[in-house]
Amino acid sequence: MAFAIRSGWHRPAPDVDIERSILPSGDSLSLRRDSPGGHIPGEAGVWILLFGEMTFFALLFASFLLYRTSDVAGFTASQAHLSKAVGLTNTLLLLTSSLFVAKAVGAASRGDTSSAPRLFRLGLACAIGFILLKGFEYHELFDRGIAIDSHVFFSFYFGLTVLHLGHVVIGSILLGAMSVATGKMLAKPSHLALIESGGCFWHMVDLLWIVIFALLYLVE
């Protein structure tokens, strides 16, 4: 089926088979951004994953603060071993990569097959920078004899950041895949929905880090 991507693919031709959403009413999940109700970023299904992961992490954050109340002095002393500058740099790296990815998704939805892959690769470069800096940070801490069992704070520090790093790695793989996929015209509207969903996953990785940075490096 042929799509006029640049002109109006948010309004698919009537013969196009649009995926059904999870809504019981069977409302179609077309990509029309100008529909009166608004456009769900990605598609409805991806929000199961996004809210699921975010709520799961929120429980981890709550556990961190709960454990912290029982040993405030120990947590504060342990926190002093972390370098705020490294955490800050990593936050800026992810914020910047999120900007590139948001731009890339926009370019992909306009059918811009040259900008979108380039922007995804820029986002990926920031992600790799984040991973390298995290490795450097771990290395520094290990050098000073700090490990997961040094204090509960470091159990949380390593547990949370390793878990988040896993998400960064999965997200980086997605960014790489999306930079390849957006290099040619997308064949179906559902492919753009996947690109948007992948972008949303990356933004979630970013916003989870925003809270982790605040909790581990900044909370007093």
Binding site: R33, H39, P41, S98, G199, C200, H203
Partner: peptide, 11 residues
Amino acid sequence: VMFTYMDVRGA
């Protein structure tokens, strides 16, 4: 981030 980058603004 959710309202702008994820485009929840238009949701």
